[in-house]
Amino acid sequence: MIDAVAGLLDAQGPGHSRQRPGDAQSRGEHRSVAQPSVAQPAVERPSVKAPDGEQVGGEQAGSGYLPESTASNQQQAAAGPQAARPLRALVIGYGSPIRGDDAIGPLVADRLAAQLAADPALGDGVEVQARHILTAEIVDDLVRAERVVFIDAAADLTPGEVRCCRLAPDTATLSTMAHFHDPRELLAWCAALYQRSPQAWLVSAGGADWGYASYSLSSTAQGAVEPMIAEILVLISPSP
């Protein structure tokens, strides 16, 4: 799926202003990282306010967002051990594997998964998913994670350019289709159903070719893979 988040963020209404990475309650901040150099900012842990005003996330969140013991948690546990396992970070790369550079999300996810598997300390508590699209059941995974990084291709960026956007729950992104959901809508599902939502970012890269391909990228998009992985590693790194 090709993201157009920048445009949507701009349309969030009066009073919205772009904020620096790490600012609390930011809804539309993003930074572009000129390829091939990659900015490596210190990752702050901004707070997100749930709809009820409860402060969640950031250093206030303690060990994570999952409640100590709730009916829903018990229900999750009954569904299987994996369903209840809290995650330090969840990384979800999504896009069509057969539409050229739209595959960059799942391809980067695959590369990252291999990298984390080779370094257990780095990958501890991190789950990486490669998906075609974002669907409703992902909410069950999102709510287990302290931080979530979505990876997608972008049509509104210069080909090869990498961007990192902070995401926040947004009910205005409600999808009229069931096939695909905006990541901010799924974060809003988390907030509405569980009164908490993970800290979330969208790391995207401009694509150059959207024609048919078999899980492969144009050379331009290929050049964005390593910068994206570097960006994601910063976002999911354990707090000092």
Binding site: T135, E137, A192, L193
Partner: peptide, 30 residues
């Protein structure tokens, strides 16, 4: 979700179970 959050959670869970079985068998959900 506002009126009956448990119902919405249960819908998510059922769909997740169906999709997980498809993924376990077929290697991917979609």
């Amino acid at each position: 979700m506002a009126q009956n959050p448990e119902l919405a959670k249960q819908g998510i869970k059922l769909r997740q179970i169906g999709q997980t079985i498809i993924e376990m068998l077929g290697g991917k959900k979609i």
